[in-house]
Amino acid sequence: MARNKNRTEVKNYKKKKLTVSTSEESPAKKKKMSPKDPEDPDDALSKVESPEMKDLEDLTPEEQRKRERKLKKERKKEEKRLKRESAIDDDDEEEKPSKPSVCELSLQYLKSWSEKRKDWKFQKTRQIWLLQNMYDQEKISDDYFPILLEYLEGLKGSARDTTVKQAEDLMKEYDKSEAKAEADVQKMSRIREVLQLLS
């Protein structure tokens, strides 16, 4: 019997909840429902006049507490959502400091090798990037290329062998091709320098 009574109470509560949808309420109504000092006469009048409060009065004290907690939760969720939206707007206005690109990191690695060899640490990924892009003048400028040639002098093992093989293959390709643009000529000169150094 007690179970059936609880079920009907829950059904009644759900019906009341559907009639008063808090998600569609205006912020003014939410302010009226928020617990304030009972000493403020304006708030006391607005509480008595609001239909939500009348619904709360019809409920048992336990149901009222549950309902108040639920409304409080919904208000907090709404506040968090508004904060998130305002934070997103703020992020759009402010530029985030971007992470350095792989190119920048590799050039810093090369520069630190040339200037501070005691503090310098070998990084395979940086070396691979440098070896793959050493012929590209846009990625490795003419200022850094002489430093890269010095770095290549100390190259050992399979990295040295594959670099020489790639340089020879590229040289053969450029010898076969007839059209030679200015960028190709600069690339060929870099390839020759690498071959002369490593061979």
Rank of each mutant, 00 (worst) to 15 (best):
K31S: 08
D169G: 00
N4F: 15
M1E: 12
E9Q: 14
Y144C: 02
Y135H: 10
E168Y: 03
K30N: 12
L152G: 03
D55N: 14
K66I: 13
S34G: 04
K111M: 06
K5R: 13
S189L: 03
K36Y: 01
D92A: 00
K99F: 06
R65G: 14
K176G: 03
K31A: 11
A44D: 13
E178H: 13
K180E: 12
R65A: 09
E79P: 01
D161N: 07
K116R: 15
K29Q: 07
D37K: 13
A179T: 09
S158P: 11
L110H: 08
E25L: 15
I128R: 07
R65D: 15
R190L: 00
D92I: 11
T60H: 04
P51V: 13
V20C: 11
E25M: 15
D37P: 06
D43M: 06
V164I: 11
V164N: 01
K156P: 02
E68Y: 02
D161Y: 08
W129S: 02
R69N: 12
Q166V: 02
Q123H: 06
Q137P: 00
R3F: 10
T19W: 07
R126S: 08
R81I: 15
E62N: 11
M33L: 14
S189R: 06
Q127N: 10
K5S: 13
E182S: 10
A167S: 09
T163E: 04
Q132E: 14
S189F: 03
S34F: 05
A181I: 09
Y151D: 00
V102R: 13
R192N: 15
W113I: 11
E95P: 06
A28D: 08
S189N: 14
E49T: 15
K72W: 12
G157L: 04
A28M: 12
T163L: 08
R75A: 14
K30M: 14
A87M: 08
K47H: 07
S86G: 01
V102D: 02
D43F: 11
K73L: 15
D169H: 03
E104R: 10
K77M: 13
L195T: 05
Q132Y: 06
R126E: 09
E57C: 10
T8P: 01
E74K: 09
Q186T: 09
E63H: 08
A179H: 03
A28S: 11
T125H: 12
K66P: 09
S114L: 07
S141W: 05
K66T: 11
N4T: 05
